[in-house]
Design a protein around this nucleic acid. Structure first.
Lengths: 158, 158
DNA sequence: AGTTTCTGGTTGCAACTTGAAACCTAGACT
DNA sequence: AGTCTAGGTTTCAAGTTGCAACCAGAAACT
């Protein structure tokens, strides 16, 4: 498969380009969502998402290759294959939910249906949040980008 | 521009497809990051990202169209244009950071350089978290998908 | 055994998207 | 005027997507 795209330059060092290499592709997040929604089989993804066959095949392979899904041939019916989220895949949940909440907030009024709830009390979850080291929720305005070498310093050199 | 792609079906009602319509495209998140990193001008995005001119032009237009960036012609030099994050764009930060942290966690060892810190104490932020309605941090295993109609009920019908 | 069906693919081909490089235009600069 | 600059468009080759048809191994039926 022609994997000749440049891996999204990173003149700034951070994990985004790496993350986007897989998840930046069309359908990846939708497959992840379906996967989290207990969709495990090829034909089920196919009809759930309305994606083209060859593209689904390609994406599943890529997600497996990147360790986001496991590909498990079923023991009882060896025609079937199960695609299951790995731990690494599960760790994409905050990103997926954050994206979803954003879409919800600004999208057309769609009362989301399968609602994500806290297993403990069955109440809908709150917003995905950026937390400080000690657990305070931070807004965009509370954030700052500083050079590694100046961590902990107030930048008085302004 | 041929906007004929299907808007990513949603047999399940949620904000993801809407969010992916803009942010699912290649470069969108990288542009957002640069934008958050105080990059405002066309030529600066161009050299910062190494993206093709026409694609950058197209993406910026799309981000503006979706209200994620504002396009402000500079008053002093009317050749110049400033692209600035809107409130809606800022609200993508949790998603962007979550993605970034995931890439950081699983990617090759890159000690991220401009580090995101809490403005208050200048210490690096913690992980982006899924919170319960009352602020407890939830892991993937603490989540459940339930039908809108059964909110608050323990599903004893198992 | 022989045929049919089902699952998860692959292949072929047309339409669309991407990227590199050249070109364009309004506004500054001298 | 003549040149430079910022932000785009245009052109064209190459890569990606999607539809539809085909394929192979494993059940299932007869």
């Amino acid at each position: 498969m022609g994997e000749l795209r440049e891996p999204l330059r990173e003149l700034t060092a951070c994990g985004l380009p790496e993350a986007l290499e897989v998840m930046g592709e069309r359908w990846s997040f939708m497959i992840l969502r379906a996967s989290f929604n207990s969709v495990y089989h090829f034909e089920d993804f196919l009809s759930e998402l309305g994606i083209a066959r060859n593209i689904l095949s390609n994406r599943l392979a890529k997600l497996v290759e990147h360790g986001i899904l496991d590909r498990l041939p079923c023991a009882e019916d060896r025609r079937r294959v199960e695609y299951r989220l790995t731990e690494k895949g599960m760790d994409l949940l905050p990103a997926m939910i954050a994206l979803r909440q954003w879409g919800q907030k600004y999208g057309v009024e769609v009362p989301e249906n399968p609602v994500l709830v806290d297993d403990r009390d069955r109440l809908p979850i709150g917003p995905v949040s950026i937390l400080s080291h000690d657990g305070r929720a931070l807004g965009p305005r509370d954030l700052n980008l500083v050079d590694r070498s100046r961590l902990g310093m107030k930048d008085d050199a302004a």
